[in-house]
């Protein structure tokens, strides 16, 4: 295998690893731009992965699984909204609580329903999203450079991967080219002004959380019934936090979010590849460096060494109408 083939295979797995990050980071984009911190992304992803696996297992239909994942994720969003919008509770505390509830509940219910130590049953093939071979992938394979790229990176992914990349321009369009998006961003910057214009801040923020729940549902579904064939204990394994880091690294903008997720996915894939291998000149590089790199990069960015990251102004502050 020459270097180019290795590069292509890493790139392919980078794309696959970045998809749950992309969905989740876009989810975070919507809620954070509306001024709601969403530490609970991790929990939503985990809960929706569990729900998707359960529904897909019982119905044998991947699309019902997706619906189940989205439904549970939106339900979690509502709890977050009820605590942090309606009751003006602390958004971070609420997110932490949801992460705990999701982490515990998925195992407790999984054990009660499937008795496999927190795993769900094996989802049958028709209950999963399998990979799609794009037209001409086999023909293209022998074309130098573009061929392997098309056949192994662009083709051969499942439908959710393509939806994820489609969500990027859609999110951009919704946020920057629709009235809903304008109001959503305004609610995150200056809710008082939006209120004065006669628009309900609370309802606006609820809607942004519903969108976030919707997108997060895809992420969880991808984990349990596209990337694998069952739900496994603590399947999200901190991906929600990496997505949060990617969102900040991308300075809360849709297209940079995609690039950041691809970068972090690439780091992950590269770490997997490097396990036990050594680089020329440097020697063996500990994989833990690659695992920590997304977080280190985000901190360096936050320190203001790579441009400045300016979060939405009203983020994390519950809105109180004038008394």
């Amino acid at each position: 295998m020459d270097y180019f083939d290795i590069f292509i295979s890493i790139l392919g797995s980078a794309v696959r690893l970045s998809i749950p990050l992309l969905f989740t980071a876009l989810a975070g984009l919507f809620s954070e731009r509306a001024g709601i911190f969403d530490i609970g992304l991790e929990g939503k992803m985990l809960a929706s992965a569990f729900a998707a696996a359960c529904v897909a297992y019982w119905t044998g239909n991947a699309w019902f699984g997706l619906l189940g994942g989205i439904g549970v994720s939106i339900a979690f969003s509502f709890v977050h909204g009820f605590a942090s919008i309606t009751n003006r509770g602390n958004q971070i505390v609420s997110g932490v609580a949801l992460n705990f509830v999701a982490a515990g509940l998925t195992i407790v219910l999984g054990q009660a329903w499937f008795r496999q130590g927190g795993r769900t049953g094996q989802v049958p093939p028709e209950g999963r999203f399998s990979s799609i071979v794009l037209p001409g992938a086999d023909m293209m394979r022998d074309v130098p450079i573009i061929g392997p790229l098309y056949a192994n990176v662009i083709s051969g992914n499942n439908i959710l991967t393509y939806i994820a990349f489609l969500m990027v321009p859609i999110s951009w369009w919704v946020l920057y080219r629709t009235r809903f998006g304008l109001r959503l961003r305004a609610v995150g910057e200056n809710p008082g002004a939006v209120d004065t214009a006669g628009i309900s801040v609370a309802w606006m923020r609820y809607r942004s959380l519903i969108v976030a729940g919707f997108l997060c549902g895809f992420a969880g579904t991808y984990l349990s019934i596209a990337q694998s064939a069952a739900f496994i204990n603590n399947m999200s394994a901190g991906k929600g936090y990496i997505a949060l880091a990617a969102l900040i690294f991308a300075k809360w903008k849709p297209v940079p979010v995609m690039l950041a997720c691809l970068l972090f996915g690439f780091l992950d894939a590269f770490a997997n590849f490097m396990q036990g291998k050594s680089l020329p000149l440097i020697g063996e590089v500990p994989v833990q460096i690659f695992q920590a790199l997304p977080y280190i990069l985000t901190c360096v960015l936050l320190a203001g060494f790579i441009g400045t990251a300016r979060p939405p102004k009203a983020g994390g502050v519950p809105y109180t109408k004038e008394r």
């Binding site: 009820f82 602390n90 609420s94 992460n99 705990f100 509830v101 982490a103």
Partner: peptide, 11 residues
């Protein structure tokens, strides 16, 4: 724990 954090903290 999650429920306690939710009800005693966020709510």
């Amino acid at each position: 724990q999650g429920m306690v954090i939710l009800f005693a903290g966020a709510l």
